[in-house]
Structures are given as structure tokens and as C-alpha cells.
């Protein structure tokens, strides 16, 4: 008999898989390094990177010294970063499964997508929750541009808020725009220099892990196109 849930869903004992995507340079690797630093003391972590042309992301994370280098694995995407996280997730799934097999007590596997455009999101068959990262220095209007990641990723990060004064962006307005685009889904205005924002991020991840362990975390699809609701409500964690 075929078991449609055989590979990825409904296996509460395996690690929580967290996807991190967003355009190039918005701070995905930095956010993962930050989470490693913040969470490694009491959680078992591993990372899969999807590099476009080099193993820069994996090397940067290894160099950051936040995790055992063997827990950071790179997959190649054949110049198709979008495909690798959405339509053919095989290489990423195998990397995540191998990490889970090599480190049996893993709590969280973070998967960094190759920096792509605003339309790239993860398949819910690859990750349990996904974080979409925007750079405040990329422009205050980006949150209004919308797209599946901005509107419907499980968490939207407006990153590098410390840069707002230097690039003439109104941080609070950008966060307000982002919230308006997301029908109540969470937004965190993050900066690595802002302790409170870091605590907010780690609390969110820990909360997802609790949901995952309780078996109540159902991966949501930001979808490629128009917004959709599941039944009668929009699911918010």
C-alpha cells in the first residue's frame, strides 16, 4: 500500500525543519548563525544550505564556529534555487534525512534557500515552518510588494533594522505595511544589535518546536500565487 505520509509528514520524532528564504543578501545565513548561537546550548541543531554557485553560505556558517562543521551541509541546485526548495525537493530532503540519521537526537534542521526573488517559497513537504527574510535597506516599499513569502510565510523578518536611519526607511511604517499584508501572521523587526528582537525570534522558534513535538504543527503552504485559506479560517501560530 502507498502511504502518502511516508516520507515527510506526521513523523513527530524527527527534527523540526525550518526553512529560511528571501532575496539575496537579506541576512538568511546571519539569521541561521544567530539562531545557532542562541539555541545550541540546549538544542541539537543542523543546517542545510542551498548555494547558487559556491559553498559560501556553508563556509560562512562553518567559519562562524557556531556548529560542528559536519552539521552544516551544502546542496547544489544546478542554477535552480527555486526548483530545489519547491518543485523537486529531493536533494534537500535527502540532506535533511542524512543529517537526522547521522545525529539521532537532532531537534531542529534549518534549511537556507539560495537567495532568490520574492516568489520563492518552500514546499510544505520539505519544511514544517518557513521564515521569509527582508532587508530594511532593500527599501521600505518591499513589504508592500507582497508575494507568497511576504504575505504567507509562517514568519516574516524585517531584518537589519539598525540600518533604517542610514537608508532613510521608516522602520515602523515598514513593519506596519508588512503586518497589513499578512492578515495577522507574525512579523519580527530584527537586528542582531537589538536584544529584544533576538529574544522574540528565538521564542518563536521554540514555540514552533513545541507545536511540532505535540504533533499539532501542520505545514502551511504560502503557495506560489493567490492567497488561500484553509477551510473557514486563516491559520496563525
Amino acid at each position: 500500500m502507498r502511504d502518502p505520509f511516508a516520507s515527510s509528514l506526521g513523523c513527530a520524532p524527527r527534527a523540526l525543519r525550518v526553512g529560511v528564504c528571501g532575496p539575496v543578501g537579506t541576512g538568511k545565513s546571519s539569521l541561521i548563525a544567530l539562531l545557532c548561537r542562541e539555541l545550541a546550548a540546549d538544542l541539537e541543531l543542523a543546517v542545510v544550505t542551498n548555494d547558487i554557485y559556491t559553498d559560501e553560505d556553508a563556509r560562512m556558517l562553518r567559519a562562524a564556529g557556531v556548529l560542528d562543521p559536519d552539521r552544516i551541509r551544502a546542496v547544489e541546485t544546478g542554477a535552480c534555487p527555486h526548483t530545489a526548495i519547491r518543485d523537486d525537493i529531493t536533494a534537500n530532503l535527502i540532506a535533511a534525512e542524512e543529517l537526522e540519521a547521522d545525529y539521532e537526537d537532532l531537534d531542529v534542521v534549518m534549511i537556507e534557500s539560495g537567495g532568490d526573488n520574492l516568489t520563492a517559497t518552500f514546499s510544505p513537504a520539505l519544511v514544517d515552518v518557513q521564515i521569509f527574510v527582508l532587508d530594511i535597506a532593500g527599501g521600505g516599499d518591499v513589504a508592500r510588494k507582497g508575494g507568497p513569502g511576504i504575505e504567507r510565510a509562517d514568519l516574516l523578518i524585517v531584518n537589519k533594522t539598525d540600518l533604517a536611519p542610514y537608508v532613510g526607511v521608516d522602520r515602523d511604517q515598514m513593519v506596519t505595511d508588512a503586518r497589513a499584508a499578512r492578515s495577522g501572521r507574525p512579523v519580527i523587526a530584527l537586528s542582531r544589535t537589538d536584544r529584544a528582537s533576538i529574544d522574540e525570534l528565538t521564542a518563536w522558534v521554540r514555540h514552533q518546536l513545541v507545536h511540532h513535538r505535540d504533533g499539532v504543527l501542520v505545514p502551511q503552504d504560502p503557495g506560489p500565487m493567490a492567497p488561500h485559506s484553509h477551510g473557514d479560517h486563516v491559520h496563525v501560530h
Partner: peptide, 9 residues
């Protein structure tokens, strides 16, 4: 076919 063919040259 979803078998990671896009990763191969």
C-alpha cells in the same frame, strides 16, 4: 521527475 535531475550536468 522529482529525482534532483536539476542538480546534474
Amino acid at each position: 521527475l522529482p529525482v534532483a535531475g536539476h542538480t546534474q550536468s
